[in-house]
Design a protein around this nucleic acid. Sequence first.
RNA 1: GGCGGUAUCGUCUAGGGGACUAGGACACGGCCCUCUCAAGGCUGGAACACGGGUUCGAAUCCCGUUACCGCUACCA
Length: 489
Amino acid sequence: MSDVTPRLRFAPSPTGYLHVGGARTALFNWLYAKKFGGQFLLRIEDTDKARSTDESTRAIFDGLNWLGLRWDETVVYQGANVERNRADALRMLENGTAYRCFCTQAELAERRAAAEAAKDSFKYDRRCDRLSAEEVQSRVDAGVPFTVRFRVPEGTTSWDDLVHETISFPNKDIEDFIVLRTDGTPIYNMAVVSDDIEMRITLVMRGDDHISNTPKQILLYRALGAPLPQFAHLPMIHGLDGKKLSKRHGATAVSDYQHLGILPGAMLNFLALLGWSPGHDIEVMSMERMVELFDTKGLQKKAAIFDPKKLEWMNGQHLSLMSASDLAPLVTPALVSAGLATTEDLYSRRDWYLTLLELLKVRSRTTDDIVRQAAPYLVDEIRYDPEAEAKQWKDRPATAALLREVGTALRDLREWEPAAMEESLRALGERLGFGDKAGKIFQPLRVALTGLSVSPGIFDVLVMLGRDRSTARIDAAVARLESGGPPGA
RNA sequence: GGCGGUAUCGUCUAGGGGACUAGGACACGGCCCUCUCAAGGCUGGAACACGGGUUCGAAUCCCGUUACCGCUACCA
């Protein structure tokens, strides 16, 4: 391990949104940088003008910010570096590690097709490298367009990958690849190496779909006389069907999960476990803990399959662990946009609100789940779930009579607190001959209070609603039951 | 086709020659808890791709086969 501070970068191309695979690559780069006190840089690879959009660039920023993966230094836009990229390519022309190629795209395509037809694998035959200096000069003078090709040397190119150990490629299998187009713009591998040198990147950590680019890039570093960074190639993420993750698999953008009510910390935790393991059966971790435990030794070589079920479970874990006050800022906007409350209202009775969150978060897997359960506590008019009504209020006259008694009992309570409620309602159950089946009271009451057959403990619900609202709901339920109308009428 | 990579329960993984009767987690089933739903606890089924080596001994090391993935552009 060198003693220079590590510099890593995440280099996405802005051609869509920030997808989960990219987010995970960013995360590992970030974790490594944090762990070893280095820098995590962001470079937008926008050299493909046709596909790059500002909107996608924004999406990348938004995604990384939401996840809390802050980058150091200013963002580098690859498109702004073409001059230097070209200068580097030209430098290779001068030092003899590259040469001019006058073959046209059409000629190349033709030869490639011919080779394919003959079932041969096509590889550039270096014919332009055999041109005499005079010939080259005369063509240049005549203004014949040319590309710059890298002259791949003899031998073998290998490196010690941080996740794969040693990987090596016989150079004979690498063709003399183009580094500069006829219009003078750099090809991907040229731009990447030129930029990574400029940015003084010490560890290139990226998807393993770049493994075959690596020997070419290493050759370029050497031709430019630059020190080699370390490389780490991360496995891909696949969908449930084992194929590369794509739109067909549903949500693949980080923002999709943001809108589904997934917590950034849970997303990160889940993504980290897809391709990395801290060992010791540790699963649920905070960002701090991940930084502490991160180690390239735990990196996986095998592609992982993205399982949304486990993500949800992970989110539930993080939800339970998070304090209500940390959760509030994340849930409040959703509550407001669902029209259930106003920010002012929630702020004015903050303790009550936090208690509500405490009650709901344990039975939620996403923040959206919390919102879905919150309505009965926040709005005046509840909606009666037809199924709950049908099941728990089967005998409507009898239920009306029961709820009347419950209402009376609750109104008579001296203190509006759980122990008193329980004592009173269980006593009522005894009197009515329910024995220890107090659920015969609790369930109909739950429907009366919330309209639902599912909720936090009944005494918690009563406390949250308060005496006035609770008794009012019971009265409303009695009226509804006695109106004789069918459920939902 | 060529080159490269990968291979442990359905899924994420632990494992780095003997501690393996292969551990944990998700999902699934059962039980407990219980006013419902969660959460939690206990519990069940479920895997070393195949074939050869090396070794006293292999999930672990080597070779081959198979399968899957990636690259194979004047794309990134």
